[in-house]
Nucleic acid binder design. Structure first.
Lengths: 258, 258
DNA sequence: AAACGACGTTTCAAATAATGAAACACTTGT
DNA sequence: ACAAGTGTTTCATTATTTGAAACGTCGTTT
């Protein structure tokens, strides 16, 4: 049978607690939060620190993610042919559209940010490669849902938690379903301040040459800079980018990276 | 006493074998290379795969670094105020100088690439954030050595392995010593095809506001584009970037990230 | 000053999980 | 059909992880 190594699982479970939201942890705090014994947590944290995976702040005795993960994480990027191929396209799109551009894939029912290029403007969205966003209130997420095969889409939607972030967030599945149908026919998706007030995004699907959905490409910017009548133009630039990616990645499939 | 978790240490030791040079491993291969039992390796790899830390290629049954590390690695970057502060400066320098720009710090006697912005030119150096380079044959390395406190510098140099990469590589410690003295007086360092033929780099030191050496900033490009009489100009732009970083990072110290 | 509380750290016997040689299952090339 | 190469599973032996309690240290409160 498949007997996994529990210590290693525990270690990575601990690492997952170090989020953008909660970047530092003390021994007792983490022990209490995970329900484990504080000795165990202490030893695991000390081990991870000795490896450079965590770093202990000398003044506070609290732990943070360390450079070893930075190093390992960037080795992955290398081997990820996807990002390597798409980044130049994103740069061009960002330059043309003058807004922050993102590339996201679907991963465990969330939008996983694979790459971004920031807007040249002073006021811009500052987001995070490697982080997750909800699917139901982002343009990337709507694209990634809408172009899923029907049964997979149903499954995903039925498991969704339509948490509300702003007054504009879609919180009813029927409404989401309807909007996804619309997205599929018009081939682009919008997020009108549904995740954050003042933030508007437009996204289009990215297919490989077998016409399998690979990712979604979006532009995001402040609502007051968004010109309603220029929507067609935004979509056009994004679609141009999407097809540039398509011709670059060929028959690349998500199965080769996930 | 300090009793570390051996399983966790072993797991990260395995991860360190997945390098740019050798990105995939099979069970037996890795077992032989580490001198461990193949059952042990098998179970550790299976565990890491179940966590998304490794990914098993379905066709070959070989393992590669997975998206979980990509995710964790990018969480570190966030918390690393250094990169967050310096990236915009690097962008400006890269635009002004039209070459690939790097920011590196000294880590375990090697140059650790913290950030880069690629040249807008077609022909450019394609390097890797999160990787290590030798100190004795890179402009970044020479800066990071030259501006070390004297005793630390002696220690570092005495432990160095002056491996030869090209005919230009400095392989004698006396010569390196002499050049470092020169670097210190002129406040910039050169690498004239010492690591790779056809590649020339210029670097300057980056200090914090306490005048402690934090990092080195370099521009790298093809030798045939390097104009000898424009050296002063390159150095000027880099130094301008270095002082922009200095005023941004304030009293930031390497102790807070390493 | 002394007592307190909160923290990381260490101890040691008991409980548990990791180990490795061998057998197994499977694929690939001869 | 065979051989040689994979990854995978087994199970008794071995070594490690575990957790309650005690310890040392810091800053705050009495």
């Amino acid at each position: 049978m498949r007997t996994l190594n529990h210590s290693v699982i525990k270690a990575f479970d601990l690492l997952d607690h170090f989020t953008q939201h909660h970047p530092t942890w003390g021994v007792r705090e983490l022990a209490q939060h995970t329900g484990q014994n504080k000795s165990t947590i202490y030893r695991l944290l000390a081990t991870l620190e000795s490896l450079g995976v965590l770093r202990k702040e000398i003044q506070t005795d609290r732990y943070t993610l360390g450079l070893k993960l930075f190093e390992l994480g960037h080795r992955v990027q290398l081997q990820q042919s996807l990002v390597h191929q798409t980044h130049p396209v994103l740069q061009r799109v960002a330059a043309n559209i003058s807004e922050t551009v993102h590339l996201g894939v679907l991963r465990s029912a969330k939008v996983f940010m694979v790459d971004k290029v920031e807007s040249p403007m002073g006021l811009k969205l500052s987001s995070t490669v490697g982080s997750y966003s909800p699917v139901h209130c982002t343009s990337l997420g709507k694209i990634l849902l809408a172009f899923q095969p029907q049964d997979r889409r149903r499954q995903l939607i039925s498991d969704l938690d339509l948490r509300s972030y702003t007054a504009n967030t879609i919180t009813r599945k029927r409404l989401l379903q309807a909007q996804l149908n619309e997205v599929r026919t018009q081939s682009y998706a919008l997020d009108r301040e549904e995740l954050e007030l003042g933030l508007i995004c437009v996204a289009v699907p990215v297919f490989n040459q077998q016409r399998e959905l690979i990712a979604a490409l979006s532009a995001a910017g402040p609502a007051n800079r968004f010109r309603e009548n220029a929507l067609g133009e935004y979509v056009g630039i994004l679609q141009q980018g999407a097809s540039a990616i398509q011709s670059r990645i060929g028959s690349f499939s998500l199965k080769t990276i996930m």
